[in-house]
Design a protein around this nucleic acid. Structure first.
Lengths: 138, 138
DNA sequence: CTGCGTGCAAATGCTTTGCAAAGAC
DNA sequence: GTCTTTGCAAAGCATTTGCACGCAG
């Protein structure tokens, strides 16, 4: 039904940079910012320029290969698309982003007459287990 | 229990600009961006500089008089705090922000062990009634 | 070869900050 | 008069874009 999600649009050229950027996302279990991607890519020897990361991300989002994750109080982050519908948890202490399972019945929120929803974003903020543990001694 | 929410902290001076900025928020029924505030304020003859708006907003948020509204894909907006708990709807066509009544039982989203939630943001995106009407002819 | 993709630097757009002048008390 | 607040311009950031060169096909 949808285009395959494991490769970019056909008209694009395969370059070292693009392959590297995609592998960084595939290896990550949490949403990444463009800078996260650049530094992660840099760790592997050959790097990528930030502008290339931005351009690649834009294309990958348009291709549907990446999903945008908007978080309150910080720039957008991205994660490989196609995962089961889920939402995120942001730890206010360490700023790490966790993926949560499942989704509320958002349909329960009644919209005004004539309004039609196409998507929703839910972000829970709080304190993650490791920060809590660290704070409450040990 | 909480500080009064109808006036700023006591140590601050009352200036024409601050009074104007607060009145703009009180007169608005939807969240405003700093630029929204500046232009709304400007309509009333005497204006305010953007930097003053930014400074006032920051103070008002710290005082708890304003609440921050984070929207996917655009800068933060602000609304007077103290309203009943609610969420927002962003029309993807006209970009207007509407307030929705009620709230889902967010507690239904199970957090991992040890995680503690302190707040949540829910934003529904879609098409509002007036844009839909305009699009479907008439 | 032909042309898309990349890196760098410059340009943006939004928000913050330094500083001298204006205003509140 | 003293100390806060304002406005403007400059500084910061994050993101985008123009361009010349390099690499994929």
């Amino acid at each position: 039904m949808n285009r395959r999600r494991d490769e970019p649009a056909s008209s694009e050229r395969s370059t070292r940079q693009k392959r590297l950027i995609r592998s960084v996302f595939e290896a990550s279990e949490r949403p990444l910012s463009p800078e996260d991607v650049r530094s992660a890519a840099a760790r592997g020897g050959e790097g990528v320029s930030l502008s290339t990361v931005y351009r690649a991300i834009r294309t990958l989002v348009e291709d549907g290969w990446l999903a945008v994750v908007e978080l309150p109080g910080s720039g957008a982050r991205y994660e490989v698309a196609g995962k089961a519908h889920h939402h995120h948890f942001v730890c206010e202490a360490c700023r790490r982003v966790y993926e949560l399972e499942g989704c509320l019945a958002v349909d329960a929120l009644k919209l005004p007459r004539g309004f039609r929803a196409t998507s929703h974003d839910i972000v829970i903020s709080g304190e993650c287990a490791s920060c809590r543990r660290a704070r409450t001694r040990r």
